[in-house]
């Protein structure tokens, strides 16, 4: 089960090692230099901030982190994603989600536990 984290209430033990990766309009994974990528991959937690829920590149970016780059640490998303996207984000490789205050956690849990898996 992925972790659901309230804004500001992130896991304290990871805070010092957390790096925020902003998934903004100019970011594509090949724009990240080899050195930067190596640095990212060595960290225990990457927090990917989504600025626009329509920007579906983030799904491929996360898949690539998990497959091509074999990132083994925790992948977290925060920002302007939709609650209705969390099952897809999880299927691509996300472990934890930062939610804004007042989010409907029950609905989030329902989506996470009920979305069927695409087995391909």
């Amino acid at each position: 089960m992925a972790m659901l984290i309230k804004q500001g209430g992130v896991i304290s033990s990871h805070v010092n090692n957390q790096v925020d990766v902003r998934f903004a309009a100019d970011l594509q994974h090949e724009n990240i230099t080899h050195d930067v990528m190596q640095q990212l991959l060595s960290l225990p937690l990457l927090n990917i901030q989504i600025e626009d829920f329509n920007d579906g590149r983030v799904f491929s970016f996360i898949r690539l982190l998990r497959t091509r780059y074999q990132y083994k640490g925790e992948l977290r998303v925060s920002g302007q994603y939709l609650m209705d996207q969390i099952a897809m984000l999880k299927a691509c490789g996300v472990d934890s989600f930062v939610f804004s205050e007042g989010s409907d956690y029950e609905h989030a849990l329902f989506i996470l536990s009920n979305t069927p898996e695409n087995t391909f």
């Binding site: 829920f53 329509n54 579906g56 799904f59 491929s60 897809m88 979305t115 695409n118 391909f120």
Partner: peptide, 14 residues
Amino acid sequence: RQWSLGHPEFAFLP
């Protein structure tokens, strides 16, 4: 059809 149904990576294409 089965591969594309609920494909998590390609639900928010351009």
